[in-house]
């Protein structure tokens, strides 16, 4: 009983922290740093790098919660995020361990897939349901800068984590 309560408290705390970190980054940081997708980077870190697959539940809850405040159709953010995590994790199974460039590549690929999935889903919805609405795709510079800033953020987080953890965590494929 106590164990369950502790697990629930941990889950709730983690959800709250990720949610607050995401809105703080988006609302308080100036452009282009407000484009850092803290939620997605956290889940890529937990699920792909730390191999903690149960964090997929956290990703589902957070993305569905953000969907409640999104201008996009409900479920689109969640579907894009879950698909991104699953695909990126599958790709990164080929690596036996993580190095600096792997971490950068993880952030870059994660954001790349997330944007691609989001726009693909949005295009599908617009094609079938909202033909009269205008859908503007982002320009390449904007897209590239977003990928770079997110990949760099993950790299900085990795560098900070190395200061606190002396051992290098290796990736074990399930």
């Amino acid at each position: 009983m106590l164990q369950t309560l502790r697990t629930l408290a941990k889950l709730f705390g983690a959800l709250l922290m990720i949610f607050l970190a995401q809105i703080t980054a988006v609302y308080l940081l100036p452009f282009p740093f407000n484009r850092i997708n803290i939620a997605l980077l956290t889940f890529l870190w937990l699920i792909v790098y730390r191999n903690n697959l149960s964090a997929l539940w956290l990703a589902l809850i957070i993305s569905l919660t953000t969907d409640l405040f999104s201008s996009l159709p409900f479920g689109l953010t969640a579907l894009a995020m879950i698909s991104t995590i699953v695909v990126t994790r599958r790709i990164f199974e080929i690596f036996s361990n993580f190095s600096w460039y792997n971490i950068f590549f993880l952030g870059a690929l994660g954001i790349f897939f997330y944007e691609i999935f989001s726009y693909a889903l949005l295009l599908t919805i617009y094609f079938f349901y909202k033909k009269t609405d205008v859908l503007q795709l982002p320009n390449l510079t904007y897209f590239a800068s977003e990928i770079f800033i997110n990949a760099l953020s993950l790299l900085i987080a990795y560098a900070i984590s190395l200061l606190f953890t002396k051992r290098k965590i290796t990736y074990h494929s399930l």
Binding site: Q22, I23, V26, Y27, R35, L40, S63, F69, T77
Partner: peptide
């Protein structure tokens, strides 16, 4: 009460 949390849209809540 806020703005878009995830995504590039310029929206307010």
């Amino acid at each position: 009460v806020g703005r878009e949390i995830i995504g590039t849209d310029k929206t307010i809540i």
